[in-house]
Design a protein around this nucleic acid. Structure first.
Lengths: 149, 149
DNA sequence: CAGTATCCTCGAGGATACTG
DNA sequence: CAGTATCCTCGAGGATACTG
């Protein structure tokens, strides 16, 4: 199965993977969440190939996760910003950061996500909006559609 | 940068990516979370190459995410199960499923995660354990270590 | 600065046959 | 059943030069 074919599969994991699963994509998104919006800044920070960055950004724009907008004329310059669909990837990014922080073996975590002001480390929780209760993994059932992969 | 080099970088996103970022890995984990533990079952379900599955499982074992355990003798057979470190990837999987469900354009979502019994769709929330409050993205500050990438 | 174009290499993964 | 071994192809990404 090719990478692009993942988008056509009836599986939420695979479809999300089709958008964010290519190499560098999550790192590019990390930069965008940090507020970095310029091609050159992101390329400098990550050190990936220029043509790769061009491709990743174009893919993100195609999927509606990022918009490319001019911020000056003559010469025309563009910047990249997250759409609401892109902002909604924040929990996914947080899940990755939290897991990496929790299980990386050596020393201090590279980044801590703090509740602004309060200073405590934020948590990611499974909850039921109806019962207004936190849930564990065993409290959750996955209900598959008949044609789900 | 090669895939394996991501593990050595001081970035929680990159380190997590070093474990789960290869193609098929998240799908293999999905199968394990569904309770499928046999090589043949997973290979049949996903249709990936046998040698690829061998490699992905070995990598997961090396990272301590999965254990390989005998479940019968003569002939010796093994099965794969998540360790606590692996179980802790559940929020990441849920984040992917929720995003895919929310933003995939066509028709019914392939899978819905329900609160067992209650039947409502579960939610993934950012919270502060100290204040016991739900947080939005703007309530969170990322504090980077001096040598963070 | 913000890209695009081109070239090159290496590795990823599919297919298949084989083993205990 | 649960893998390993081998072969082959294609694509991913690095490096570099070029453009407006």
């Amino acid at each position: 199965m090719r990478h692009d074919d993942l988008a056509d599969v009836n599986c939420s994991v695979a479809r999300t993977w089709a958008v964010v699963g290519e190499r560098w994509t999550m790192l590019v998104l990390r930069e965008l969440f940090r507020g970095r919006r310029r091609f050159e800044v992101i390329q400098d920070q990550l050190g990936l190939g220029r043509s790769v960055l061009t491709d990743r950004l174009r893919t993100l724009v195609e999927h509606g996760v990022v918009v490319r907008e001019p911020y000056q004329d003559s010469p025309r310059r563009h910047e990249y910003r997250l759409t609401p669909k892109g902002e909604d990837l924040y929990p996914l990014l947080v899940a990755m950061i939290r897991w990496g922080d929790r299980w990386s073996t050596d020393g201090d975590p590279p980044v801590v996500l703090e509740h602004r002001g309060c200073g405590h480390e934020v948590d990611l929780r499974l909850a039921c909006p109806a019962c207004d209760r936190d849930l564990g993994r065993r409290d959750v059932t996955a209900v598959f559609a008949p044609d789900a992969w």
